[in-house]
Lab assay of single mutants.
Amino acid sequence: SIEEEIKKAEEAKEKGKTFIHGDFVATTEELLDELLKRLRKKL
């Protein structure tokens, strides 16, 4: 679910890890923020 993806992305951000969502690879905090923004729009 979208909620689960958001939670996983937030955890990755806290730990400074890379998060992959489909073909979107978030390797930096900026990219994770962008991904979180996109996911929240889908809610």
Rank of each mutant, 00 (worst) to 15 (best):
1 S>L: 11
1 S>H: 09
1 S>V: 07
1 S>T: 12
1 S>Q: 08
2 I>Q: 04
2 I>F: 05
2 I>M: 05
2 I>P: 03
2 I>E: 01
2 I>R: 04
2 I>W: 08
2 I>S: 05
3 E>G: 06
3 E>S: 08
3 E>N: 06
3 E>P: 05
3 E>T: 08
3 E>K: 10
3 E>F: 11
3 E>H: 09
3 E>L: 14
4 E>I: 08
4 E>R: 08
4 E>H: 08
4 E>M: 11
4 E>F: 07
4 E>T: 06
4 E>G: 05
5 E>A: 15
5 E>H: 09
5 E>K: 08
5 E>T: 15
5 E>W: 15
6 I>Q: 04
6 I>P: 01
6 I>N: 02
6 I>G: 03
6 I>M: 04
6 I>V: 04
6 I>W: 02
7 K>P: 02
7 K>T: 07
7 K>S: 06
7 K>V: 05
7 K>G: 05
8 K>G: 06
8 K>V: 02
8 K>S: 06
8 K>H: 06
8 K>N: 07
8 K>W: 07
9 A>E: 01
9 A>S: 02
9 A>P: 02
9 A>W: 06
9 A>T: 03
9 A>F: 03
9 A>N: 02
9 A>G: 03
9 A>L: 13
9 A>K: 03
10 E>K: 08
10 E>G: 03
10 E>A: 05
10 E>W: 08
10 E>Y: 07
10 E>I: 12
10 E>P: 02
10 E>Q: 10
11 E>H: 06
11 E>V: 07
11 E>R: 06
11 E>N: 05
11 E>W: 10
11 E>Q: 08
11 E>Y: 10
11 E>S: 06
12 A>V: 01
12 A>W: 03
12 A>H: 04
12 A>Q: 02
12 A>N: 02
12 A>C: 15
12 A>Y: 04
12 A>P: 01
13 K>G: 03
13 K>P: 01
13 K>S: 03
13 K>Y: 08
13 K>C: 15
14 E>L: 14
14 E>T: 12
14 E>Q: 13
14 E>K: 14
14 E>P: 02
15 K>S: 10
15 K>H: 12
15 K>I: 04
15 K>W: 08
15 K>E: 06
16 G>P: 00
16 G>F: 10
16 G>H: 11
16 G>A: 02
16 G>V: 03
16 G>N: 08
17 K>T: 13
17 K>S: 10
17 K>W: 15
17 K>E: 14
17 K>N: 12
18 T>Y: 12
18 T>V: 13
18 T>I: 14
18 T>C: 15
18 T>Q: 12
18 T>F: 12
18 T>W: 15
19 F>E: 02
19 F>D: 03
19 F>A: 04
19 F>W: 07
19 F>G: 04
19 F>N: 04
19 F>T: 04
20 I>E: 06
20 I>W: 09
20 I>T: 11
21 H>L: 12
21 H>D: 03
21 H>V: 08
21 H>N: 04
21 H>T: 07
21 H>A: 06
22 G>W: 14
22 G>F: 09
22 G>P: 06
22 G>K: 05
22 G>R: 02
22 G>I: 13
23 D>F: 13
23 D>K: 08
23 D>V: 13
23 D>T: 12
23 D>R: 04
23 D>Y: 12
23 D>N: 13
23 D>G: 10
23 D>P: 07
23 D>C: 15
24 F>M: 06
24 F>W: 10
24 F>L: 07
24 F>G: 03
24 F>H: 04
24 F>T: 05
24 F>K: 00
24 F>I: 08
24 F>R: 00
25 V>Q: 08
25 V>F: 12
25 V>A: 09
25 V>R: 03
25 V>C: 15
25 V>I: 13
26 A>G: 03
26 A>W: 11
26 A>E: 01
26 A>I: 11
27 T>I: 09
27 T>P: 01
27 T>Y: 14
28 T>N: 09
28 T>E: 03
28 T>F: 12
28 T>H: 01
28 T>W: 10
28 T>R: 01
29 E>W: 15
29 E>M: 14
29 E>K: 14
29 E>Q: 13
29 E>Y: 10
29 E>S: 13
29 E>A: 14
30 E>C: 14
30 E>N: 05
30 E>W: 13
30 E>S: 09
30 E>L: 09
30 E>K: 11
30 E>M: 08
30 E>R: 10
30 E>I: 07
30 E>H: 09
30 E>P: 02
31 L>I: 06
31 L>P: 01
31 L>H: 08
31 L>Y: 03
31 L>M: 14
31 L>D: 14
31 L>N: 03
32 L>W: 06
32 L>N: 00
32 L>S: 00
32 L>K: 00
32 L>M: 04
32 L>V: 02
32 L>P: 00
32 L>R: 00
32 L>I: 13
33 D>T: 09
33 D>C: 15
33 D>G: 05
33 D>Y: 12
33 D>K: 11
33 D>S: 08
34 E>V: 06
34 E>Q: 10
34 E>G: 04
34 E>S: 05
34 E>A: 10
34 E>W: 15
34 E>T: 07
34 E>M: 12
35 L>I: 10
35 L>G: 00
35 L>F: 04
35 L>D: 00
36 L>M: 03
36 L>T: 00
36 L>S: 00
37 K>T: 11
37 K>W: 05
38 R>T: 09
38 R>L: 15
38 R>G: 01
38 R>V: 12
38 R>C: 15
38 R>F: 15
38 R>M: 15
39 L>W: 06
39 L>V: 00
40 R>V: 03
40 R>P: 00
40 R>T: 01
40 R>Y: 14
40 R>L: 08
40 R>C: 12
40 R>W: 11
40 R>A: 01
41 K>V: 08
41 K>R: 14
41 K>Y: 07
41 K>D: 09
41 K>T: 08
41 K>N: 09
41 K>P: 00
42 K>Y: 13
42 K>R: 12
42 K>D: 06
42 K>A: 13
42 K>Q: 13
42 K>N: 03
43 L>E: 00
43 L>G: 01
43 L>Y: 07
